[in-house]
């Protein structure tokens, strides 16, 4: 399938839920409404012509000052069409919640855990939403823009000084 057919097919199916289709340097992005994300994911994966069977990456962008602060970014790939598609869903900071796509793509499990760890996005219906890299008791989400690069003193408990 050609790129135009792919995007128009998704647009046809979901109509107003697909907010914007953009192209930059050959990458096609699809902005969608966050409440429809699982439905769209299921369609992308299971449709005969599309077959976006592999989820390559899930991450978030912190826009810091914007009203809708976070954009969740999914990169999916279709072996059949040899096509990379980027899906974006923008959510507000309060509360930073979006449905998990783990039920559609199993690989999203760790990607979403990482995104939760780094940005504090809560993925609804995620089977095991724990921190991926940072220790369990850590309070902050380091890739948020307000977190300083040098870290916050005292945020990571260190071993006590020997006498």
């Amino acid at each position: 399938m050609e790129q135009k057919n792919i995007t128009s097919k998704i647009k046809e199916k979901f109509g107003e839920s697909v907010l914007e289709i953009t192209e930059f340097r050959g990458d096609v992005s699809l902005s969608v409404t966050p409440n429809k994300i699982v439905e769209i994911a299921e369609f992308l994966k299971n449709d005969e012509d599309l077959q976006f069977v592999m989820c390559k990456d899930v991450t978030a962008i912190d826009w810091a000052t914007r009203k809708n602060r976070f954009t969740i970014v999914y990169h999916v790939y279709s072996f059949k069409n040899n096509f990379n598609l980027r899906i974006k869903a923008t959510i507000s900071e309060d509360p930073p919640v979006i449905d998990s796509v783990t039920s559609v793509w199993r690989s999203a499990n760790w990607y979403e855990r990482e995104t939760y760890d780094m940005y504090g996005i809560n993925f609804r219906n995620h089977p095991d939403l724990r921190r991926m890299y940072m220790p369990e008791g850590f309070e902050y989400h380091p890739l948020r823009k307000e977190f300083p690069v040098l870290g916050i003193p005292g945020s990571l408990p260190l071993p006590e000084k020997p006498e």
Binding site: F24, D27, K56, D57, V73
Partner: peptide, 15 residues
């Protein structure tokens, strides 16, 4: 703008 680029690395696809 934003781009995603991936290359075939010995371990797999580095993007």
């Amino acid at each position: 703008g934003d781009v995603f680029f991936s290359a075939e690395n010995p371990k797999g696809e580095l993007g």
